[in-house]
Write a protein that binds this DNA or RNA. Structure first.
Length: 494
RNA sequence: GGGCCCGUAGCUCAGCGGUAGAGCAGCGGACUUUUAAUCCGUCGGUCCUGGGUUCGAAUCCCUGCGGGCCUACCA
């Protein structure tokens, strides 16, 4: 009789029957071993030749599979460490307890105690002497063999995805390991980890539209941060020489395979370092993470193998455009000339695009897709980088680099602009663009500008989209696979 | 935002103008070392929504909702 309602009704009925003889939701368990620890225990005890009765364990977990055959049954039980098999026999657990296995369903959690042994096929197994229900689940889990395949359901109900798909668990573990590894890298280098405000009166530090929210008590609108930059720099001003933050930022933009409205940004700032120091650090960081998390500096991704071992390619913005597109920006100093180039190459651009914006469009379409192996691009046009320090010998270019892997930007860094007068001018230029209707132009943050006037040490700053790094390491192509709960439209149950 | 594709049982999927199907899960039965257990029986549907075409629509057409992939911006 199983429509969904009926399946739930059956389980609720079983819950009632369990309640009659005990508590199907006890607060405590008597677990002695995780599934993995139990198996390790069996192996260890076999090695020293212990008797079966000397290796009694209590394991707990969710019932993942059930094979009942008359007066014996096998249950596969899974906990966070892995899976272990249980064997129940009517003559061992008693006929009443054996009959009560009809009250068990896939998805329930149980606790079982008994000696470890191997079946004749060698499977490590607990010969259950006693067992108890820990949780009666009242909804059925996804199909045991194929798991949950429906992509939408996997994102909306991640708990079901994780419960039924090993690959999804693996991605989640790897992603967590990436963050832990990044954190370890910076701690080892004496960077201080900090947390800065998510709610801000101005959302600065990047070119993006912010989310707006409202503070009732203060009676004013606040913005969710779009970057970590401006507050971290204030910490440099305050006297901390090495700081970093790993935090969620929010950008009010479209969602896609590569974009989620909230994502995790890593930013670090190091006083007395310049962008070349930061580039060396980024190289070391990627190797550190790949070695720790992927176990190799050759990272497979689709048809490519990313080589993190060889020195990363280094070129300049201008040279990359020459090499990959045959365009020398010095030969196209004026907007009209550059527009002609873009048209000739069939690169789309907005009518309002400035010279630098148009240049960036050319970069994105003609150059970046070719940068599969790690490649640093140094020295960006000043107009695109309002927070970066100009190169001493060429004021049209700033000391900024981006690192590309798999044709996508992975890191962005610069020698930080610390001249308060110039910073004010550059921010005002951005503010003028904003006033001109550019919703993604940077805002002038007066508090930041004032702070900068107290003096910020020369410093190298870095930003890395953590999900991009997770995608690189896991080999996934969609950001939604590495974000546990990606943004989805409301479902209006139609 | 544009293009292509998808939405059928709790889950995985067939069916693509003529009475809505299978496997898993469930329920009943057999089975005391199985492991996608096996075997027999059985229950289960707003075929995403709303319109249209047709004697007849899960199937063809249109609209809407949700999703995926590619593409455009950002990280």
């Amino acid at each position: 009789m199983p429509s969904e309602e009926e399946l739930i009704a059956q389980r609720l009925e079983k819950r009632e029957r369990l309640l009659a003889t005990g508590d199907p939701y006890p607060a405590r368990t008597a677990r002695t071993h995780t599934a993995a620890a139990a198996i390790a225990e069996l192996e260890a005890s076999e090695a020293v030749g212990l008797e079966r009765t000397e290796r009694i364990v209590t394991v707990t977990g969710r019932i993942a599979a059930q094979r009942v055959m008359g007066k014996a049954a096998f249950l596969d039980v899974r906990d966070g460490s892995g899976r272990v098999q249980l064997h129940l026999r009517a003559d061992t657990v008693g006929s009443d307890a054996f009959q009560r296995i009809d009250l068990l369903d896939l998805g329930d959690f149980i606790e079982a105690t008994g000696p470890l042994f191997r079946t004749r096929t060698g499977e490590p197994t607990v010969a259950v002497a006693t067992y108890a229900v820990l949780v009666k689940a009242v909804r059925p889990p996804p199909e045991k063999w194929h798991g949950l395949q429906d992509v939408e359901a996997r994102y909306r109900q991640r708990h079901l995805d994780l419960m039924s798909n090993e690959r999804s668990r693996e991605i989640a573990r790897t992603s967590a390991a990436v963050v832990a590894s990044v954190r370890r890298f910076f701690h080892e280098r004496d960077f201080m980890e900090v947390e800065t405000p998510v709610l801000q009166s101005e959302a600065g530090g990047a070119a993006a539209r912010p989310f707006v929210t409202h503070h009732n008590a203060l009676g004013r609108d606040l913005f969710l941060r779009i970057s970590l930059e401006l507050h971290l720099k204030r910490l440099l001003i305050g006297g901390f020489d090495r700081v970093f933050e790993i935090g969620r930022v929010f950008r009010n933009e479209g969602v896609s395979t590569r974009h989620n409205p909230e994502f995790t940004l890593l930013e670090s700032y190091e006083a007395y370092a310049d962008y070349h120091d930061v580039a060396r650090m980024v190289e070391a960081l990627l190797r550190h993470v790949a070695a720790e998390v992927a176990g190799s500096l050759q990272v497979p991704h689709g048809e490519h193998v990313i080589d993190l071992e060889a020195p990363f390619a280094r070129t300049t913005y201008r040279q990359a455009l020459i090499d990959h597109a045959g365009i020398d920006l010095r030969e196209h100093r004026d907007l009209d000339s550059l527009r002609a180039v873009a048209r000739a190459r069939h690169v789309a651009f907005e009518a309002t695009a400035s010279w630098a914006t148009l240049l960036d469009a050319l970069m994105s379409t003609l150059v970046e897709p070719h940068l599969v192996q790690p490649t640093f691009i140094f020295d960006y046009p000043t107009e695109l980088s309002p927070l970066a320090k100009r190169k001493a010998d060429d004021p049209e270019v700033v000391e900024r680099f981006e690192l590309f892997v798999l044709g996508r930007e992975l890191a962005n860094a610069y020698s930080e602009l610390n001249d308060p007068v110039e910073q004010r001018e550059r921010m005002q230029a951005q503010a003028a663009k904003a006033a001109g209707g550019d919703e993604e132009a940077e805002v002038a943050d007066e508090d930041f500008l004032e702070a900068l006037e107290y003096g910020m040490p020369p410093a190298g700053g870095l930003g890395i989209g953590i999900e991009r790094l997770m995608m690189l390491v896991t080999g996934e192509h969609s950001i939604r696979e590495v974000i546990l709960f990606p943004a989805m439209r409301d479902r209006t149950d139609s």
